[in-house]
């Protein structure tokens, strides 16, 4: 196996959560909360090879965006480190060194929020590469025109402002801006979640084309199992801050191992399979403020045993390239 481009090494992230306005009001009537610690990401290890697309799936609050932001250098991990091309970058991250910010680029869910409404999109796309001397200022215009063309936008659009574009076009602009930095790694955080399905297909096709042309390496974050299956080589399933299963995409979807993965697949409505006999996962997603003991999934898992409440299962190999974090895989009983 070739050397990993990215090595996420036992990374954790904790946030101190301060009560929001509603909770402060509620605390006046005696029902509020105090500041607490959110365990957003707990002991996650994952490597990404050059040219690989790794999908990151899970329900909201499981830590996908936090992990993505750690990789992009926006957050510093509380524990663990990020190795990029075999060099540790954790130290520099707080200062957001030029080097790192140019090597990893992030594309966010809401393309409008990430574009300055008063700046022409050509200038938005040119700003990063000019500042970081990826391109000379006098060549910026043709550079931007070329990149807009690559993402399927008419190069003349570079004189326009963000509000003149539809949601799908704005997401193309956000991708163009990221690509203009010639990143080694792209982190795409729910890039198609806010788009209509017909537009979503256009953006996914664009991503697959770019991947082929530019040999992109990417972490593709989505809550949509169908989308992730379509674009990823490997998929990591997250639950409450931990990776619970990691596998090559085809194998994962053909035979999910972890009880949570299996339950998740069962819950997903599908087109074209007719009226569904829903057998949803019982219970709510627990709060990362106060995660369950042992295996985080134990209060909702149909196979829970005494060991599951005591001991957190490690993410352990279950086959070539596959791993899963469940006691059922080690020793028969849970």
């Amino acid at each position: 196996m070739s050397a990993a481009l990215l090595d996420i090494d036992h990374v954790s992230k904790r946030f101190v959560k301060h009560p929001n306005l509603g909770e402060r009001i509620a605390s006046l009537v005696g029902a509020g909360r105090k500041a607490e610690v959110v365990r957003a990401v707990t002991d996650v290890s994952l490597t990404v090879q050059k040219g690989e697309v790794v999908g990151l799936v899970g329900e909201s609050g499981c830590g996908k965006s936090t992990l993505g932001r750690i990789v992009a250098g926006i957050y510093t991990p509380s524990d663990g480190r990020i190795l990029f091309g075999n060099a540790p970058v954790a130290k520099e991250q707080g200062r957001r060194t030029q080097k790192l910010t140019t090597r990893v680029q992030m594309v966010h869910q809401d393309p409008f929020a990430s574009l300055n409404p008063r700046i022409r999109i050509g200038d938005t796309v040119a700003e990063g590469p000019v500042t970081h001397r990826i391109v000379k200022a006098r060549e910026a215009d043709s550079y931007v025109a070329d990149i807009l063309g690559r993402v399927g936008l008419d190069p003349s659009y570079r004189r326009r402002f963000p509000h003149q574009f539809s949601g799908g076009q704005r997401q193309r602009i956000a991708i163009a801006r990221a690509l203009a930095m010639k990143p080694d790694l792209l982190v795409l955080d729910e890039p198609v979640a806010s788009l209509d399905v017909s537009i979503q297909a256009q953006v996914l096709n664009l991503f697959m084309d770019l991947r082929q042309d530019l040999d992109l390496t990417a972490i593709f974050i989505s809550h949509d199992l169908g989308v992730v299956r379509h674009v990823s080589d490997r998929v990591a399933i997250m639950y409450l801050g931990r990776i619970v299963e990691l596998a090559p995409t085809a194998e994962l979807y053909a035979a999910p191992n972890h009880p949570y993965t299996r339950a998740l697949f069962e819950s997903v409505p599908r087109v074209g399979v007719g009226r569904k006999d829903f057998r949803p996962i019982a219970g709510e997603i627990p709060s990362p403020l106060n995660p369950p003991s042992g295996c985080h999934f134990h209060p909702r898992c149909p196979f829970t045993g005494p060991r599951c409440k005591r001991e957190a299962p490690a993410l352990a190999p279950i086959g070539p390239g596959r791993s899963s974090a469940c006691h059922l895989n080690t020793g028969g009983t849970a």
């Binding site: 297909a201 299956r229 674009v231």
Partner: peptide, 24 residues
């Protein structure tokens, strides 16, 4: 038909999705 065809879960992974051109 166009909407239904563009749902990724109904296609072989990695293949080009049939897309409805343009936007609403």
């Amino acid at each position: 038909a166009g909407l239904l065809a563009s749902v990724p879960a109904e296609h072989e992974p990695g293949t080009r999705l049939p897309q409805v051109p343009g936007s609403t």
